[in-house]
Nucleic acid binder design. Structure first.
Length: 428
RNA sequence: GCGGUAUUGGUGAAGUGGUUAACACACCGGUUUGUGGCACCGGCACACGUGGGUUCGAUCCCCACAUACCGCCCCA
Protein backbone atom coordinates (compact mmCIF):
# COMPACT_ATOMS: atom_id res chain seq x y z
CA UNK A 1 0.00 0.00 0.00
CA UNK A 2 1.41 3.34 -0.90
CA UNK A 3 0.29 6.56 0.64
CA UNK A 4 -1.50 9.32 -1.11
CA UNK A 5 -2.48 12.78 -0.03
CA UNK A 6 -5.94 13.28 1.43
CA UNK A 7 -8.69 14.00 -1.02
CA UNK A 8 -8.82 17.61 -2.06
CA UNK A 9 -5.32 18.52 -0.92
CA UNK A 10 -2.27 19.38 -2.98
CA UNK A 11 1.47 19.30 -2.61
CA UNK A 12 2.97 22.62 -3.56
CA UNK A 13 6.34 21.70 -4.98
CA UNK A 14 9.30 24.10 -5.02
CA UNK A 15 8.73 25.52 -8.50
CA UNK A 16 5.12 26.23 -7.64
CA UNK A 17 5.99 27.50 -4.17
CA UNK A 18 8.07 30.23 -5.80
CA UNK A 19 4.90 31.59 -7.34
CA UNK A 20 3.18 31.53 -3.99
CA UNK A 21 6.01 33.50 -2.46
CA UNK A 22 5.81 35.98 -5.29
CA UNK A 23 2.11 36.57 -4.73
CA UNK A 24 2.41 36.68 -0.97
CA UNK A 25 5.28 39.13 -1.13
CA UNK A 26 3.44 41.48 -3.43
CA UNK A 27 0.31 41.29 -1.30
CA UNK A 28 2.35 42.14 1.76
CA UNK A 29 3.99 45.09 0.03
CA UNK A 30 0.71 46.52 -1.16
CA UNK A 31 -1.07 46.00 2.15
CA UNK A 32 1.69 47.59 4.15
CA UNK A 33 1.52 50.72 2.05
CA UNK A 34 -2.06 51.02 3.30
CA UNK A 35 -0.83 50.52 6.85
CA UNK A 36 -2.14 47.00 7.21
CA UNK A 37 -0.13 44.56 9.33
CA UNK A 38 -0.07 40.84 9.52
CA UNK A 39 -2.10 38.85 12.01
CA UNK A 40 -1.86 35.09 12.46
CA UNK A 41 -4.70 33.26 14.05
CA UNK A 42 -5.21 29.52 14.59
CA UNK A 43 -6.07 27.25 11.72
CA UNK A 44 -8.73 25.64 13.87
CA UNK A 45 -11.21 27.26 16.18
CA UNK A 46 -14.14 26.21 18.26
CA UNK A 47 -16.88 25.12 15.91
CA UNK A 48 -19.16 27.78 17.38
CA UNK A 49 -16.94 30.55 16.03
CA UNK A 50 -17.86 29.68 12.48
CA UNK A 51 -21.39 28.62 13.17
CA UNK A 52 -22.03 31.99 14.77
CA UNK A 53 -20.42 34.10 12.08
CA UNK A 54 -21.32 32.36 8.86
CA UNK A 55 -24.92 31.64 9.70
CA UNK A 56 -26.29 28.32 10.81
CA UNK A 57 -28.25 27.82 7.64
CA UNK A 58 -25.40 28.61 5.26
CA UNK A 59 -23.99 25.67 3.37
CA UNK A 60 -20.55 26.45 4.67
CA UNK A 61 -21.77 25.58 8.12
CA UNK A 62 -24.43 23.01 7.41
CA UNK A 63 -22.40 20.71 5.21
CA UNK A 64 -18.94 22.00 4.36
CA UNK A 65 -17.41 22.36 7.78
CA UNK A 66 -14.33 20.24 8.37
CA UNK A 67 -15.07 19.52 12.02
CA UNK A 68 -14.25 16.91 14.64
CA UNK A 69 -14.17 16.32 18.36
CA UNK A 70 -10.74 16.43 19.91
CA UNK A 71 -9.53 14.21 22.73
CA UNK A 72 -10.95 16.62 25.24
CA UNK A 73 -14.36 16.37 23.59
CA UNK A 74 -14.15 19.91 22.25
CA UNK A 75 -16.03 20.50 19.04
CA UNK A 76 -13.38 21.87 16.72
CA UNK A 77 -13.55 23.05 13.13
CA UNK A 78 -10.81 23.78 10.63
CA UNK A 79 -11.42 27.33 9.52
CA UNK A 80 -13.51 27.58 6.34
CA UNK A 81 -12.70 31.25 5.90
CA UNK A 82 -10.54 33.87 7.52
CA UNK A 83 -12.79 36.58 8.85
CA UNK A 84 -14.37 34.73 11.77
CA UNK A 85 -11.08 33.88 13.43
CA UNK A 86 -9.78 37.39 13.02
CA UNK A 87 -12.93 38.88 14.51
CA UNK A 88 -12.70 36.42 17.40
CA UNK A 89 -9.07 37.45 17.96
CA UNK A 90 -10.00 41.14 17.72
CA UNK A 91 -12.57 40.75 20.46
CA UNK A 92 -10.63 38.30 22.63
CA UNK A 93 -7.52 40.49 22.64
CA UNK A 94 -9.63 43.60 23.18
CA UNK A 95 -8.13 45.25 20.16
CA UNK A 96 -11.11 47.56 20.18
CA UNK A 97 -9.59 49.25 23.23
CA UNK A 98 -8.73 52.97 23.29
CA UNK A 99 -4.99 52.33 23.16
CA UNK A 100 -5.34 51.06 19.59
CA UNK A 101 -5.38 53.34 16.61
CA UNK A 102 -8.51 52.95 14.56
CA UNK A 103 -9.29 51.67 12.09
CA UNK A 104 -7.43 48.59 13.16
CA UNK A 105 -6.13 47.05 9.95
CA UNK A 106 -4.80 43.53 9.54
CA UNK A 107 -4.07 41.05 6.80
CA UNK A 108 -3.50 37.31 6.82
CA UNK A 109 -2.79 34.44 4.51
CA UNK A 110 -3.00 30.74 5.01
CA UNK A 111 -4.93 27.55 4.51
CA UNK A 112 -8.71 27.26 4.79
CA UNK A 113 -10.76 24.09 4.74
CA UNK A 114 -14.11 23.12 3.37
CA UNK A 115 -15.41 19.61 3.19
CA UNK A 116 -16.71 19.64 -0.34
CA UNK A 117 -16.28 17.80 -3.58
CA UNK A 118 -13.02 18.88 -5.23
CA UNK A 119 -13.34 20.52 -8.62
CA UNK A 120 -11.55 22.97 -10.80
CA UNK A 121 -9.79 25.53 -8.61
CA UNK A 122 -11.64 24.15 -5.64
CA UNK A 123 -10.07 21.99 -2.98
CA UNK A 124 -10.73 20.87 0.56
CA UNK A 125 -7.62 22.65 1.70
CA UNK A 126 -7.26 25.89 -0.16
CA UNK A 127 -5.60 29.18 0.62
CA UNK A 128 -6.75 32.70 1.03
CA UNK A 129 -5.12 36.03 1.45
CA UNK A 130 -7.40 38.43 3.22
CA UNK A 131 -7.63 41.77 4.97
CA UNK A 132 -9.90 43.16 7.68
CA UNK A 133 -10.31 46.69 9.04
CA UNK A 134 -12.25 47.41 12.22
CA UNK A 135 -13.71 50.43 13.86
CA UNK A 136 -14.85 52.81 11.17
CA UNK A 137 -18.08 53.15 9.25
CA UNK A 138 -16.57 55.72 6.94
CA UNK A 139 -17.45 55.07 3.31
CA UNK A 140 -13.93 56.21 2.53
CA UNK A 141 -12.70 53.07 4.24
CA UNK A 142 -14.85 51.05 1.85
CA UNK A 143 -13.31 52.96 -1.01
CA UNK A 144 -9.80 52.45 0.31
CA UNK A 145 -10.37 48.75 0.74
CA UNK A 146 -11.63 48.38 -2.79
CA UNK A 147 -8.82 50.51 -4.15
CA UNK A 148 -6.29 48.34 -2.36
CA UNK A 149 -7.79 45.19 -3.84
CA UNK A 150 -7.65 46.68 -7.31
CA UNK A 151 -4.09 47.81 -6.79
CA UNK A 152 -3.04 44.35 -5.71
CA UNK A 153 -4.41 42.76 -8.86
CA UNK A 154 -2.86 45.47 -10.95
CA UNK A 155 0.51 44.87 -9.32
CA UNK A 156 0.13 41.23 -10.25
CA UNK A 157 -0.36 42.42 -13.82
CA UNK A 158 -3.88 41.15 -14.15
CA UNK A 159 -5.89 42.81 -16.84
CA UNK A 160 -9.46 42.48 -18.02
CA UNK A 161 -10.84 42.99 -14.57
CA UNK A 162 -13.83 44.95 -13.48
CA UNK A 163 -15.35 45.92 -10.21
CA UNK A 164 -18.90 45.06 -9.27
CA UNK A 165 -20.51 46.55 -6.17
CA UNK A 166 -23.80 46.29 -4.39
CA UNK A 167 -25.27 47.18 -1.04
CA UNK A 168 -27.04 44.75 1.21
CA UNK A 169 -28.04 47.51 3.59
CA UNK A 170 -28.33 47.13 7.34
CA UNK A 171 -30.26 44.53 9.29
CA UNK A 172 -33.57 46.34 8.88
CA UNK A 173 -33.02 46.67 5.15
CA UNK A 174 -32.27 43.00 4.80
CA UNK A 175 -35.35 41.92 6.72
CA UNK A 176 -37.63 44.17 4.68
CA UNK A 177 -36.12 43.14 1.37
CA UNK A 178 -36.16 39.47 2.21
CA UNK A 179 -39.88 39.73 2.82
CA UNK A 180 -40.50 41.71 -0.35
CA UNK A 181 -38.59 39.21 -2.45
CA UNK A 182 -40.48 36.27 -1.02
CA UNK A 183 -43.75 38.12 -1.55
CA UNK A 184 -42.85 38.69 -5.18
CA UNK A 185 -41.62 35.19 -5.93
CA UNK A 186 -44.18 33.13 -4.05
CA UNK A 187 -46.97 33.66 -6.58
CA UNK A 188 -44.49 32.71 -9.30
CA UNK A 189 -43.33 29.64 -7.47
CA UNK A 190 -44.64 27.22 -10.06
CA UNK A 191 -42.60 28.92 -12.75
CA UNK A 192 -39.33 28.74 -10.88
CA UNK A 193 -36.76 26.05 -11.51
CA UNK A 194 -36.76 23.14 -9.10
CA UNK A 195 -33.63 24.43 -7.43
CA UNK A 196 -35.09 27.86 -6.96
CA UNK A 197 -38.32 26.52 -5.55
CA UNK A 198 -36.24 24.94 -2.87
CA UNK A 199 -34.23 28.13 -2.40
CA UNK A 200 -37.42 30.07 -1.88
CA UNK A 201 -37.63 28.70 1.62
CA UNK A 202 -33.96 28.05 2.31
CA UNK A 203 -32.22 31.10 0.88
CA UNK A 204 -34.33 33.34 -1.38
CA UNK A 205 -31.48 35.74 -2.13
CA UNK A 206 -29.73 32.92 -3.95
CA UNK A 207 -32.48 32.90 -6.54
CA UNK A 208 -31.12 36.24 -7.66
CA UNK A 209 -28.08 34.64 -9.22
CA UNK A 210 -29.71 31.46 -10.43
CA UNK A 211 -28.21 30.06 -13.61
CA UNK A 212 -31.61 29.08 -14.92
CA UNK A 213 -32.67 31.19 -17.88
CA UNK A 214 -36.31 31.53 -16.90
CA UNK A 215 -35.42 32.26 -13.30
CA UNK A 216 -33.32 35.12 -14.56
CA UNK A 217 -36.20 36.54 -16.52
CA UNK A 218 -38.40 36.43 -13.44
CA UNK A 219 -35.70 37.92 -11.29
CA UNK A 220 -35.25 40.77 -13.71
CA UNK A 221 -38.67 42.04 -12.67
CA UNK A 222 -38.10 41.43 -8.99
CA UNK A 223 -37.81 44.28 -6.52
CA UNK A 224 -34.23 45.43 -6.02
CA UNK A 225 -32.62 45.70 -2.64
CA UNK A 226 -31.38 49.13 -3.53
CA UNK A 227 -34.96 50.40 -3.26
CA UNK A 228 -35.16 49.09 0.28
CA UNK A 229 -32.03 50.68 1.67
CA UNK A 230 -32.54 52.57 4.89
CA UNK A 231 -31.60 56.22 4.80
CA UNK A 232 -28.23 55.59 6.42
CA UNK A 233 -27.44 52.73 4.11
CA UNK A 234 -28.48 54.69 1.06
CA UNK A 235 -26.27 57.61 2.06
CA UNK A 236 -23.40 55.28 2.75
CA UNK A 237 -23.73 53.61 -0.63
CA UNK A 238 -23.93 56.94 -2.39
CA UNK A 239 -20.77 58.09 -0.65
CA UNK A 240 -18.93 54.93 -1.65
CA UNK A 241 -19.88 55.48 -5.27
CA UNK A 242 -18.75 59.09 -5.14
CA UNK A 243 -15.51 58.05 -3.52
CA UNK A 244 -14.76 55.48 -6.19
CA UNK A 245 -15.45 57.98 -8.91
CA UNK A 246 -13.19 60.47 -7.17
CA UNK A 247 -10.31 57.99 -7.34
CA UNK A 248 -11.07 57.19 -10.93
CA UNK A 249 -12.15 53.63 -10.22
CA UNK A 250 -14.77 52.35 -12.62
CA UNK A 251 -17.48 50.17 -11.21
CA UNK A 252 -20.69 48.45 -12.11
CA UNK A 253 -23.65 48.08 -9.78
CA UNK A 254 -25.24 44.65 -9.71
CA UNK A 255 -28.22 44.66 -7.38
CA UNK A 256 -28.55 40.89 -7.74
CA UNK A 257 -25.08 40.18 -6.41
CA UNK A 258 -25.24 38.18 -3.21
CA UNK A 259 -22.49 36.54 -1.24
CA UNK A 260 -22.24 33.20 0.43
CA UNK A 261 -21.80 34.22 4.02
CA UNK A 262 -24.58 35.64 6.11
CA UNK A 263 -22.69 38.34 7.93
CA UNK A 264 -22.34 40.93 5.20
CA UNK A 265 -24.00 44.32 5.49
CA UNK A 266 -24.00 47.42 3.33
CA UNK A 267 -21.22 47.48 0.76
CA UNK A 268 -20.23 44.23 -0.88
CA UNK A 269 -17.97 43.96 -3.88
CA UNK A 270 -16.33 41.53 -6.23
CA UNK A 271 -13.58 42.01 -8.72
CA UNK A 272 -14.31 39.92 -11.76
CA UNK A 273 -11.65 38.74 -14.16
CA UNK A 274 -12.05 37.26 -17.59
CA UNK A 275 -9.39 34.78 -18.47
CA UNK A 276 -8.68 31.95 -20.88
CA UNK A 277 -7.69 29.98 -17.79
CA UNK A 278 -11.41 29.70 -17.12
CA UNK A 279 -12.64 29.32 -20.66
CA UNK A 280 -13.00 33.07 -20.88
CA UNK A 281 -15.76 32.84 -18.33
CA UNK A 282 -15.85 35.70 -15.94
CA UNK A 283 -14.89 34.64 -12.46
CA UNK A 284 -14.42 36.33 -9.13
CA UNK A 285 -10.84 37.03 -8.19
CA UNK A 286 -11.55 38.99 -5.03
CA UNK A 287 -14.72 39.24 -2.99
CA UNK A 288 -15.45 41.16 0.14
CA UNK A 289 -17.61 43.58 1.97
CA UNK A 290 -18.73 45.14 5.23
CA UNK A 291 -19.82 43.18 8.25
CA UNK A 292 -21.01 45.80 10.66
CA UNK A 293 -22.68 43.47 13.14
CA UNK A 294 -20.04 40.82 13.47
CA UNK A 295 -17.84 42.23 16.22
CA UNK A 296 -20.84 42.66 18.45
CA UNK A 297 -21.99 39.19 17.56
CA UNK A 298 -18.71 37.91 19.00
CA UNK A 299 -19.27 39.71 22.27
CA UNK A 300 -17.35 42.87 21.45
CA UNK A 301 -18.64 46.41 21.18
CA UNK A 302 -20.94 47.38 18.35
CA UNK A 303 -18.11 48.08 15.95
CA UNK A 304 -18.09 47.85 12.19
CA UNK A 305 -15.68 45.92 10.02
CA UNK A 306 -14.81 45.48 6.39
CA UNK A 307 -12.54 43.16 4.48
CA UNK A 308 -11.96 40.98 1.47
CA UNK A 309 -10.49 37.64 0.60
CA UNK A 310 -8.61 36.23 -2.36
CA UNK A 311 -8.45 32.58 -3.32
CA UNK A 312 -4.77 31.98 -3.94
CA UNK A 313 -5.16 28.85 -6.08
CA UNK A 314 -7.51 30.65 -8.42
CA UNK A 315 -5.33 33.69 -8.53
CA UNK A 316 -2.36 31.56 -9.52
CA UNK A 317 -4.33 30.00 -12.35
CA UNK A 318 -4.93 33.49 -13.62
CA UNK A 319 -1.28 34.43 -13.28
CA UNK A 320 -0.06 31.32 -15.07
CA UNK A 321 -2.18 32.33 -17.94
CA UNK A 322 -0.75 35.79 -17.99
CA UNK A 323 2.69 34.28 -17.95
CA UNK A 324 3.81 36.05 -14.85
CA UNK A 325 7.48 36.63 -15.23
CA UNK A 326 8.85 34.39 -12.57
CA UNK A 327 12.44 33.71 -13.37
CA UNK A 328 14.05 30.83 -11.65
CA UNK A 329 16.90 32.21 -9.63
CA UNK A 330 20.11 30.62 -10.90
CA UNK A 331 22.72 29.08 -8.69
CA UNK A 332 25.75 31.32 -8.31
CA UNK A 333 28.47 28.68 -8.14
CA UNK A 334 28.77 24.98 -8.72
CA UNK A 335 31.81 23.20 -7.49
CA UNK A 336 33.26 20.34 -9.51
CA UNK A 337 35.62 17.89 -7.85
CA UNK A 338 37.94 15.66 -9.83
CA UNK A 339 38.76 13.12 -7.16
CA UNK A 340 38.02 12.05 -3.64
CA UNK A 341 41.35 13.40 -2.54
CA UNK A 342 40.23 17.01 -2.94
CA UNK A 343 36.89 16.69 -1.20
CA UNK A 344 37.86 18.29 2.08
CA UNK A 345 39.52 21.30 0.42
CA UNK A 346 36.61 21.68 -1.96
CA UNK A 347 34.08 21.56 0.83
CA UNK A 348 35.86 24.37 2.67
CA UNK A 349 35.83 26.47 -0.46
CA UNK A 350 32.13 25.78 -0.91
CA UNK A 351 31.35 26.89 2.62
CA UNK A 352 33.37 30.07 2.14
CA UNK A 353 31.23 31.01 -0.83
CA UNK A 354 28.05 30.39 1.11
CA UNK A 355 29.28 32.40 4.07
CA UNK A 356 29.68 35.32 1.71
CA UNK A 357 26.05 35.13 0.79
CA UNK A 358 26.27 33.44 -2.60
CA UNK A 359 24.47 30.24 -3.45
CA UNK A 360 26.64 27.25 -4.19
CA UNK A 361 26.36 23.52 -4.41
CA UNK A 362 28.39 20.43 -5.25
CA UNK A 363 27.94 16.81 -6.26
CA UNK A 364 27.14 14.23 -3.63
CA UNK A 365 26.72 11.21 -5.86
CA UNK A 366 30.32 10.61 -6.93
CA UNK A 367 29.61 11.61 -10.50
CA UNK A 368 32.27 11.97 -13.14
CA UNK A 369 33.49 15.44 -14.00
CA UNK A 370 31.37 15.45 -17.12
CA UNK A 371 28.32 14.54 -15.10
CA UNK A 372 29.08 17.29 -12.62
CA UNK A 373 29.25 19.85 -15.40
CA UNK A 374 25.95 18.62 -16.70
CA UNK A 375 24.40 19.14 -13.32
CA UNK A 376 25.84 22.62 -13.13
CA UNK A 377 24.15 23.29 -16.42
CA UNK A 378 20.84 21.92 -15.25
CA UNK A 379 20.99 24.08 -12.15
CA UNK A 380 21.69 27.10 -14.36
CA UNK A 381 24.82 27.77 -12.42
CA UNK A 382 26.58 30.97 -13.39
CA UNK A 383 30.06 29.81 -12.53
CA UNK A 384 31.71 26.44 -12.18
CA UNK A 385 34.78 26.07 -10.03
CA UNK A 386 36.87 23.00 -10.71
CA UNK A 387 38.91 21.69 -7.83
CA UNK A 388 41.53 19.04 -8.53
CA UNK A 389 44.78 17.99 -7.02
CA UNK A 390 46.78 20.45 -9.11
CA UNK A 391 44.58 23.28 -7.94
CA UNK A 392 44.97 22.35 -4.32
CA UNK A 393 48.75 22.38 -4.80
CA UNK A 394 48.99 25.66 -6.67
CA UNK A 395 46.29 27.43 -4.70
CA UNK A 396 44.43 28.62 -7.79
CA UNK A 397 41.16 27.34 -9.19
CA UNK A 398 39.66 27.81 -12.63
CA UNK A 399 36.32 29.60 -12.52
CA UNK A 400 34.28 29.12 -15.65
CA UNK A 401 31.43 31.33 -16.72
CA UNK A 402 28.94 28.88 -18.14
CA UNK A 403 27.16 31.44 -20.22
CA UNK A 404 30.24 32.68 -22.07
CA UNK A 405 32.50 29.68 -21.67
CA UNK A 406 35.29 31.91 -20.42
CA UNK A 407 37.48 30.64 -17.67
CA UNK A 408 39.74 32.56 -15.32
CA UNK A 409 42.03 31.66 -12.45
CA UNK A 410 41.29 32.80 -8.92
CA UNK A 411 43.16 32.13 -5.72
CA UNK A 412 41.46 29.78 -3.31
CA UNK A 413 42.53 32.04 -0.47
CA UNK A 414 40.55 34.90 -1.95
CA UNK A 415 37.34 32.99 -1.49
CA UNK A 416 38.20 32.64 2.17
CA UNK A 417 39.57 36.10 3.00
CA UNK A 418 38.88 38.50 0.20
CA UNK A 419 35.64 37.75 -1.52
CA UNK A 420 35.48 41.26 -2.89
CA UNK A 421 38.53 40.43 -4.95
CA UNK A 422 36.80 37.33 -6.31
CA UNK A 423 33.84 39.43 -7.36
CA UNK A 424 36.09 42.03 -8.93
CA UNK A 425 37.82 39.42 -11.05
CA UNK A 426 34.52 37.95 -12.14
CA UNK A 427 33.28 41.38 -13.18
CA UNK A 428 35.91 41.80 -15.85
C1' G B 1 -24.52 14.55 -1.38
C1' C B 2 -25.80 13.29 -7.08
C1' G B 3 -24.15 12.19 -12.25
C1' G B 4 -20.21 11.44 -16.11
C1' U B 5 -15.06 10.33 -17.64
C1' A B 6 -10.41 8.57 -16.32
C1' U B 7 -6.29 5.72 -13.53
C1' U B 8 -0.12 1.78 -17.67
C1' G B 9 7.61 3.58 -15.91
C1' G B 10 10.46 9.73 -13.47
C1' U B 11 7.29 12.17 -17.66
C1' G B 12 4.07 11.97 -22.25
C1' A B 13 1.79 8.01 -23.88
C1' A B 14 0.70 3.01 -27.39
C1' G B 15 -1.37 -1.73 -26.69
C1' U B 16 -3.43 -7.07 -26.19
C1' G B 17 -8.01 -12.27 -22.67
C1' G B 18 -2.67 -16.31 -23.25
C1' U B 19 5.39 -17.09 -24.32
C1' U B 20 9.78 -11.10 -23.94
C1' A B 21 3.99 -4.77 -22.18
C1' A B 22 5.43 -0.27 -28.28
C1' C B 23 7.52 4.48 -29.02
C1' A B 24 9.34 9.15 -27.26
C1' C B 25 11.43 12.38 -23.56
C1' A B 26 14.11 12.43 -19.11
C1' C B 27 17.79 9.95 -16.27
C1' C B 28 22.36 6.72 -15.62
C1' G B 29 26.78 4.58 -17.99
C1' G B 30 30.15 4.17 -22.25
C1' U B 31 32.61 6.02 -26.94
C1' U B 32 36.11 11.11 -24.62
C1' U B 33 41.91 9.01 -17.55
C1' G B 34 39.55 16.45 -15.34
C1' U B 35 34.74 20.66 -18.47
C1' G B 36 28.75 21.76 -20.12
C1' G B 37 26.73 20.64 -26.81
C1' C B 38 25.85 16.95 -30.72
C1' A B 39 26.11 11.95 -32.38
C1' C B 40 26.26 6.81 -31.63
C1' C B 41 25.93 2.42 -28.24
C1' G B 42 23.96 0.29 -23.80
C1' G B 43 20.85 0.38 -19.21
C1' C B 44 16.16 1.74 -17.07
C1' A B 45 8.02 -1.08 -15.44
C1' C B 46 7.63 -4.53 -7.31
C1' A B 47 4.08 -5.89 -14.27
C1' C B 48 -0.51 -1.92 -16.16
C1' G B 49 -4.64 2.64 -8.94
C1' U B 50 -6.39 -0.99 -4.60
C1' G B 51 -9.35 -5.26 -3.35
C1' G B 52 -12.52 -8.97 -4.97
C1' G B 53 -14.93 -11.87 -8.99
C1' U B 54 -15.58 -14.36 -13.99
C1' U B 55 -12.00 -17.52 -16.71
C1' C B 56 -7.80 -23.03 -17.92
C1' G B 57 -5.60 -17.96 -18.02
C1' A B 58 -6.67 -10.97 -17.17
C1' U B 59 -3.25 -5.15 -17.58
C1' C B 60 -7.21 -5.76 -20.99
C1' C B 61 -14.41 -8.53 -18.93
C1' C B 62 -17.57 -7.63 -14.21
C1' C B 63 -18.18 -5.46 -9.11
C1' A B 64 -16.64 -2.52 -5.04
C1' C B 65 -13.35 1.06 -3.13
C1' A B 66 -9.68 5.07 -3.64
C1' U B 67 -8.03 9.25 -6.21
C1' A B 68 -8.15 12.93 -10.27
C1' C B 69 -10.89 15.79 -13.79
C1' C B 70 -15.83 17.68 -15.62
C1' G B 71 -21.04 18.98 -14.52
C1' C B 72 -25.01 19.73 -10.54
C1' C B 73 -25.95 21.41 -5.42
C1' C B 74 -22.97 25.00 -3.17
C1' C B 75 -19.12 28.47 -3.33
C1' A B 76 -16.24 32.08 -5.25
Amino acid sequence: MHYQKPKGTADILPAEAKKWQYVENIAQEVFETYNYHEIRTPIFESYDVFERSSGESSDVVSKEMYDFNDKGERHIALRPEGTAGVVRAYVENKLFGPEQVKPYKVYYHGPMFRYERPQSGRQRQFHQIGVEAFGSTSPDLDVETIAMAMQLLARLKLTDMHLVINSLGDAATQAAYHQALVDYLTPLQAELSADSQRRLTSNPLRILDSKDQHDQELVAQAPTILDFLSEDSAQHFAAVKTGLTNLGIDYEIDHTMVRGLDYYTNTIFEIMVTSPAFNNQEMTAIGGGRYDGLVKEFGGPDEPGIGFGIGVERLLLLLDDQDAALQEKPLDFYLVKTSEAVESSAFKLLQAIRRNGYSADQDYLARKVKGQFKNADRLHAQYVITVGETEVETGNVPVKNLATGEQIEIEIAAFENNFADVLAKLQK
